[in-house]
């Protein structure tokens, strides 16, 4: 079967090289002989989220994010149904905040999110900026994720499961030691870098889940991940020191 990827608003949300996530997801499918098709969905385009296997949404600047909220709110029921059905989603930074209940501004006004998940975000006094290492358990395997965060919002999980535990960096809010969030097959994170290239275990989990949703339950063929592991390890050593 062909995996169909939905890259949401690539025209709007093109900060921090996040399109690298889509490129890496697609390449790792192709290298295994799994056909993959990337559809770019922009403001106002017709979309049925159920038809997709993997959805990626990134972050943008404030104004662009405003435009996106408006557009997505109009399609929220369609998206919610797909998420509840097990659509695999990766949401980064602004996209992550948007999946939750609201973003509270310093003056107390709340910008409503899509409310697909229970987390909420409050504006912070300073930005959390820097390299991050996270301990995560992915498909039963312990993995160390690395990335770069740059966000002013403080996100609180409100009962939902984090993506992992912060070993270095700020994470969701700089205080509770969590990073990112998970709900069904939705994975959220503040990490740019982009996230997927240096964290192939996460990429492969997303591919596996996309296939499983279509009833294809098989182990992925291993790839030569030499560069991936070197890049991941170099950052861990830089931040945590050599083992």
């Amino acid at each position: 079967m062909t995996i169909t990827v939905c890259h949401l608003y690539p025209d709007l949300l093109n900060l921090y090289g996040d399109r690298g996530n889509v490129m890496v997801f697609a390449q790792r499918c192709r290298w295994r002989g799994i056909p993959v098709r990337i559809m770019e969905v922009n403001l106002g385009d017709q979309v049925q989220f159920e038809d997709y296997d993997f959805l990626f949404i990134g972050g943008g600047s404030d104004r662009e994010q405003g435009l996106m909220v408006e557009d997505l709110t109009a399609r929220v029921n369609n998206l919610r149904a797909a998420v509840e059905d097990g659509l695999v989603v990766l949401a980064i930074c602004g996209g992550y905040q948007l999946m939750g209940k609201y973003y509270r501004m310093p003056d107390g006004t709340e910008i409503p999110g899509l409310g697909l998940m229970d987390h909420y975000t409050e504006a912070g006094d300073t930005r959390l900026i820097g390299n991050v290492v996270v301990d995560a358990e992915l498909g039963g395997i312990k993995t160390r994720l690395v990335g770069f965060e740059n966000h002013g919002g403080r996100t609180f999980l409100n009962g939902i499961q984090p993506l992992g535990k912060v070993l270095h960096g700020g994470g969701n809010n700089g205080s509770d030691g969590t990073e990112g969030a998970r709900y069904r097959n939705v994975f959220c994170s503040y990490l740019h870098g982009p996230l997927l290239p240096k964290n192939p275990a996460l990429t492969d989990l997303l591919i596996t889940l996309s296939l499983q949703r279509r009833g294809q339950d098989h182990r992925l063929e291993p790839l030569d991940d030499n560069f991936e592991e070197l890049a991941n390890q170099a950052m861990i050593e830089k931040l945590l020191g050599k083992k």
């Binding site: 290239p197 560069f227 890049a231």
Partner: peptide, 22 residues
């Protein structure tokens, strides 16, 4: 300092890995 990241970027761009050295 970020040689590995650069190599990784070239790999995913489709440059054959045997042409890339760190």
């Amino acid at each position: 300092q970020r040689a590995e990241d650069m190599a990784l970027r070239l790999k995913y761009a489709g440059v054959p890995v045997w042409m890339v050295d760190i």
